[in-house]
Design a protein around this nucleic acid. Structure first.
Length: 229
DNA sequence: GCGACAG
DNA sequence: ATCTTGTCGC
């Protein structure tokens, strides 16, 4: 699939919450949780921010060298905001702009780190899983807080973790990425297993709380990032 | 019916 | 997410 084809897979918000939920359940059935990603050469981080009081959705995609973590390309896509934030339906609000940003990267990534839940979602289709299913790309969801699920207390050191459970199923893991800092909520998005997801997050995590792909996309989406020269 | 609730 | 400066802690 060529990058430009991806925008055609964007979910369409028609104001019908019930219909959106049915679509999520259908798409969730297409999520693959077996490890099935190529040797990692380039990885991407994507995130969304808002401008002008929320009227403009700003999506950022950063491509980095998987070996050195050096940024290879950065893209920002802007679109008018079409719907409000509704817990559980985040992908309908943010995916259109995110797909546009991803499609404008010069090369396709081997893995995408998405800011939000993977399958750790009421219907097992958080934005990372949704993005994976519509693009076919391997994805991992890295969220800063929980949408659904419960867990035991997590140890204080980097690498400590606890399974996140919901309705009798393990849907992700609560992972401490840095000593004594609030843990991250990690869950597979697509073509990545439950066991591998947290390992990949740690592998791409350096001295900050967030893994590098996510951290760079975050800064770009939120207008921060000191591009001082 | 009463909360909780990714970003 | 966003509105927003300095400040407490490692």
């Amino acid at each position: 699939m060529t990058p430009t084809d991806m925008t055609h897979a964007a979910p369409v918000w028609n104001g019908d919450v019930a219909k959106a939920r049915v679509l999520q359940t259908e798409l969730a059935a297409r999520v693959r949780l077996e490890d099935d990603y190529p040797p990692l050469r380039r990885v991407a981080g994507v995130d969304v921010g808002f401008e002008d009081g929320g009227t403009v959705t700003r999506a950022a995609a950063v491509l980095l060298d998987a070996r050195t973590l050096a940024p290879l390309a950065e893209v920002v896509a802007r679109q008018p905001t079409r719907m409000p934030y509704i817990p559980g339906l985040l992908s309908f609000r943010e995916l259109p702009a995110l797909l546009q940003a991803l499609s404008e990267l010069p090369e396709s990534p081997d893995l995408v780190f998405v800011d939000g839940q993977g399958i750790a979602h009421p219907r097992r289709l958080g934005i990372a899983a949704h993005l994976g299913v519509v693009t076919g790309l391997p994805t991992i969801g890295v969220a800063k807080s929980i949408l659904v699920g419960t867990h035991e207390d997590v140890g204080p050191h980097r690498g400590d973790r606890q399974p996140l459970e919901h309705k009798g199923e393990v849907i992700g893991c609560v992972l401490r990425s840095k000593d004594r800092v609030r843990p991250l909520i990690v869950s597979p998005g697509h073509r990545v297993s439950m066991a591998t997801a947290p390992e990949l997050v740690l592998a791409f995590n350096t001295t900050y709380r967030l893994p590098e792909p996510t951290r760079l996309a975050d800064r770009l989406a939120s207008r921060r990032g000191s591009v001082r020269r």
